[in-house]
Design a protein around this nucleic acid. Structure first.
Length: 548
RNA sequence: GGCCCGUUGGUGAAGUGGCUUAACACAUAGCCCUCUCAAGGCUACAUUCAUGGGUUCGAAUCCCAUACGGGUCACCA
């Protein structure tokens, strides 16, 4: 019996060869510098911020070079697989307009290198494994979990390196006849790669972020095919897929750095050239004095849905990530306000290689505020409408009913050189403008600040309405009247005068304005009062003042 | 424990031997402007780049040790 016989016994139905697949998936015709990148998440049911951050790098790298960005679904761990996960990933990418050029969705394959779902690529992996068995670079391993655990304990005890390698690789030395007999007896097995590496030897590896690294050769006989479902492990699928699909640049988290030697040896076994690697720092979070990875359970902001639920503009989320990706992005963006992140030239070398990037929600808030402040009122309205339709139906109905009115509210102090920056996301709009709607105006708590005497408050309000309020006044006239009102009632109309002689007055024009402001809005802090009064109109104003 | 990566302010960080008495941005604080708030303007915020040695006329930048932090050592990705 030969290795070839063994290969046929294990994969009797695999007729296509590695050569066949190479022909089926020919090398991509790329022009100089064009990059092929991929986003390859495993469908676990949520989209992690860290994954999305990598997807952006993939997208930008491909876009910068006029290359291809594709989506590959890494569902080789069927235990963890979640039904809607693929849809969620696709929806998220679409929502942020980070669309892949090639992908598989709902049974449709877009692109010539599919399938793009690993579980549908089983025969391909099997053909590659079959070839490895034929050339004696892979073998079945019958070791049970308990045996492996024991072995590990032993290794720990004797301070040996942990793993399945060298003399610890028991099944490596099984004869072909022994193997065939075990298989015929129905023993369970995995397929392991037969490593030819020497842990004592080192090789140089270029990571695009960190530069040249010196790493020990791999000598572990890693599992490449699992026993129960015969699917490949990540390492093997990574090699086969990125080789066949012509990936030129692999963007992945730095947790993969330690398995680089494995991947390099795998590529070498097939005489293939490994892609370039960009190992990105993890996104971490500070907890007390230590930092840790952003976690799905503890940190709501780790999940992409958080940003949608809270109504952060997609552009702002991407921008905040861009500032982590390349810190010179902000400066570039200031100089090129009309361009999008896709026009930015990403350079891996400029990525931080330090432990991890702290994701700062304050920074996002700031970016988001600036972004929203630059939109037109109509644009903000449309976005608010889309958001509230999904996350605040009551408010959605209200703003739909009063569309023009709402746009006018959103337009307060917006059309000026330096627009207000009130809203950090769509969710924060309602708590800031609710009082503009009678339907929502049911709050009976007023805080009139400096003037507390109820009679005085009523006097100010009544005098104002009866003597001074005129709907048709322009802004200057309006404020002059508030000053006149102040003087009439013994308040300083000029702040400087008041500050010089506070004892001469009952208070000042700011106090008087505040009384009007609070009566109308319940809040002592609002945007321009004149604009608010103008929008509300006489009827609402009188009604609200009468409530006091 | 082995291997790998890293360590500049509250945060993201610029910086690759002299231009650095360490850029820019966020956050924070104060002042100014001002009818409130927001915005805006001004100012403050690391005498120092984890620590200790060394190389050099000169180091955050090069070398060596130490410390600390992180990652990884699965039939998970």
């Amino acid at each position: 019996m030969t290795n070839k016989d063994l290969a046929n016994i294990i994969f009797p139905n695999i007729t296509k060869t590695v050569e066949d697949y190479k022909n089926m998936y020919p090398k991509r015709e790329l022009k100089e510098g064009e990059k092929v990148t991929r986003f390859a998440p495993s469908p676990t049911g949520f989209m992690h911020l860290g994954g999305f951050y990598q997807a952006i790098i993939d997208k930008i790298l491909a876009h910068n070079s006029n290359g291809i960005f594709y989506l590959r679904n890494e569902d080789t761990d069927q235990k963890r697989e979640v039904k809607e996960a693929v849809e969620l990933i696709m929806n998220t990418l679409n929502y942020y307009d980070v669309k892949p050029d090639e992908y598989e969705y709902n049974g449709n394959i877009v692109g010539n290198y599919g399938p793009y779902i690993q579980s549908e690529r089983k025969e391909i992996y099997h053909a590659f494994i079959k070839y490895l068995i034929e050339i004696d670079r892979a073998y079945p391993c019958f070791c049970k979990k308990e045996e492996l655990d024991q072995m590990r304990e032993k290794q720990e005890k004797y301070k040996a390196r942990i793993g399945y390698y060298g003399r610890y690789a028991k099944c490596r030395n099984l004869s072909i006849d022994e193997i065939i007999e075990k298989i015929k007896n129905g023993e369970e097995y995995v397929i392991r790669f037969k490593s030819l590496g020497d842990n004592e030897k080192r090789f140089f590896f270029d990571d695009l972020v960190r530069g040249t690294l010196s790493l020990p050769e791999n000598d572990q006989d890693i599992v490449i095919m699992k026993s129960n479902d015969k699917l490949p492990t990540y390492h093997f699928a990574h090699f086969v897929d990125d080789f066949l699909m012509g990936t030129t640049h692999v963007v992945r988290g730095e947790e993969w750095l330690p398995s680089v030697p494995v991947h390099v040896e795998l590529f070498k076994a097939f005489d293939a050239k490994p892609p370039k690697y960009i190992h990105t720092p993890l996104i971490v979070k500070k907890e007390g004095n230590s930092v840790r990875k952003l976690s799905k359970r503890k940190d709501p902001e780790a999940t992409m849905s958080y940003y949608e639920e809270n109504g952060y503009p997609q552009e702002a989320v991407i921008e905040s990530l861009m500032t982590i990706i390349n810190s010179n992005y902000e400066e570039w963006h200031d100089k090129n306000p009309e361009k999008t992140y896709l026009d930015f030239t990403f350079s891996p070398k400029k990525m931080s290689s330090s432990g991890g990037a702290l994701y700062d929600i304050e920074k996002l808030n700031n970016i988001s505020k600036n972004f929203i402040s630059k939109l037109s009122a109509t644009e903000v309205y449309n976005r608010l409408s889309n958001w509230s339709k999904k996350f605040d139906e009551e408010f959605y109905e209200l703003i739909t009913k009063y569309k023009d009115y709402t746009i006018n509210i959103l337009n307060i102090e917006r059309v000026q050189k330096k627009p207000r920056k009130d809203y950090e996301n769509y969710k924060s709009i309602k708590p800031q403008i609710w009082y503009m709607y009678d339907e929502l105006f049911d709050k009976k708590e007023y805080d009139f600040q400096n003037i507390t005497d109820k009679n005085e408050i009523k006097l100010i309000l009544n005098t104002y309405v009866e003597k001074y309020y005129d709907e048709s006044d322009d802004k200057d006239t309006w404020f002059n009247k508030v000053k006149e009102l102040s003087e009439e009632l013994g308040y300083a109309s000029n702040m400087k005068e008041y500050k010089e002689n506070p004892d001469k007055f009952k208070g000042n024009v700011a106090d008087v304005s505040t009384v009007i402001r609070v009566a109308i809005t319940t809040s002592s802090q609002t945007p321009d009062l004149y604009e608010i009064l103008k929008l509300l109109g006489k009827e609402k104003i009188i009604k609200r003042i009468n409530l006091i």
